[in-house]
Amino acid sequence: MLADTPEPPYYAVIFTSLMGDDSSGYAAMADKMLTLARARPGFLGVESAREGIGITVSYWSDLDAIRAWKRDIDHREAQRLGRERWYAAYRTRIARVERDYSFEDQGD
């Protein structure tokens, strides 16, 4: 499902990753992080795909909301486990969204 974001500007956190050999507990933690992120002030939505490379884009109202999420104690634990157990490599990028347009086939 595509995230229903507001009119720009807003911010996108683009997290790309390659999984390592041990994925035990990963799916449960990913679900927990999504639940927690959705409850955070400033969270706007998320889109995610995984096939070979994982790409998750979360959308936020401002940089302060992103900083607060990065410092969240449960999120910090997930980050630690990601580095120690789940990921062979990852990269995080933060971008300001200036334009947003879409197409939806209404099936008429």
Rank of each mutant, 00 (worst) to 15 (best):
Met1Thr: 12
Leu2Tyr: 06
Leu2Phe: 09
Ala3Asn: 05
Ala3Glu: 08
Ala3Phe: 08
Thr5Glu: 04
Thr5Ala: 09
Thr5Cys: 15
Thr5Gly: 07
Pro6Asp: 06
Pro6Lys: 07
Glu7Gln: 13
Pro8Trp: 05
Tyr10Glu: 03
Tyr11Trp: 12
Ala12Gln: 04
Ala12Asn: 02
Val13Cys: 00
Val13Met: 02
Val13Asn: 00
Phe15His: 02
Met19Lys: 09
Gly20Leu: 07
Asp21Arg: 07
Asp22Ala: 08
Asp22Ile: 09
Ser23Thr: 14
Ser23Lys: 08
Ser24Leu: 08
Ser24Tyr: 06
Ser24Thr: 14
Gly25Met: 01
Gly25Leu: 01
Tyr26Leu: 15
Ala28Gly: 10
Ala28Tyr: 00
Ala28Ile: 01
Met29Ile: 13
Ala30Cys: 01
Ala30Ile: 02
Lys32Glu: 15
Lys32Asp: 14
Leu34Val: 14
Thr35Asn: 09
Leu36Pro: 01
Leu36Arg: 13
Ala37Thr: 04
Arg38Gly: 12
Ala39Leu: 08
Arg40Ala: 11
Arg40Trp: 00
Gly42Asp: 05
Gly42Lys: 05
Leu44Phe: 02
Val46Trp: 00
Glu47Trp: 05
Glu47Cys: 08
Glu47Met: 10
Ser48Asn: 13
Ala49Tyr: 08
Arg50Met: 06
Gly52Glu: 02
Gly52Ile: 00
Gly52Arg: 01
Gly52Ala: 03
Ile53Gln: 09
Ile53Cys: 04
Thr56Leu: 07
Thr56Pro: 03
Val57Asp: 03
Ser58Cys: 09
Ser58Gln: 06
Ser58His: 06
Trp60Met: 10
Trp60Cys: 09
Ser61Leu: 13
Ser61His: 13
Asp62Gln: 05
Asp62Phe: 06
Asp64Thr: 15
Asp64Phe: 03
Asp64Leu: 12
Ala65Trp: 08
Ala65Ile: 08
Arg67Asp: 15
Arg67Ser: 15
Arg67Cys: 05
Arg67Met: 10
Arg67Trp: 05
Trp69Phe: 11
Lys70Glu: 14
Lys70Tyr: 11
Lys70His: 14
Lys70Asp: 15
Asp72Thr: 10
Ile73Phe: 10
Asp74Cys: 01
His75Tyr: 04
Arg76Cys: 07
Arg76Ile: 06
Glu77Tyr: 11
Glu77Asp: 15
Ala78Trp: 00
Ala78Lys: 01
Ala78Thr: 03
Ala78Gly: 04
Arg80Leu: 14
Leu81Ile: 03
Leu81Cys: 01
Arg83Leu: 13
Arg83Cys: 04
Arg83Ala: 13
Glu84Ala: 15
Tyr87Thr: 04
Tyr87Asp: 03
Ala88Thr: 04
Ala88Trp: 00
Ala88Glu: 10
Arg91Asn: 12
Arg91Leu: 07
Arg93Lys: 11
Ile94Asn: 04
Ile94Met: 09
Ile94Ser: 04
Ile94Trp: 06
Ala95Asn: 05
Ala95Gln: 13
Arg96Tyr: 02
Arg96Gln: 15
Arg96Ile: 03
Arg99Phe: 08
Arg99Cys: 04
Arg99Met: 09
Arg99Leu: 11
Asp100Val: 07
Ser102Phe: 12
Phe103Tyr: 15
Phe103Gly: 00
Phe103Ala: 13
Glu104Gly: 09
Glu104Trp: 07
Gly107Pro: 01
Asp108Met: 12
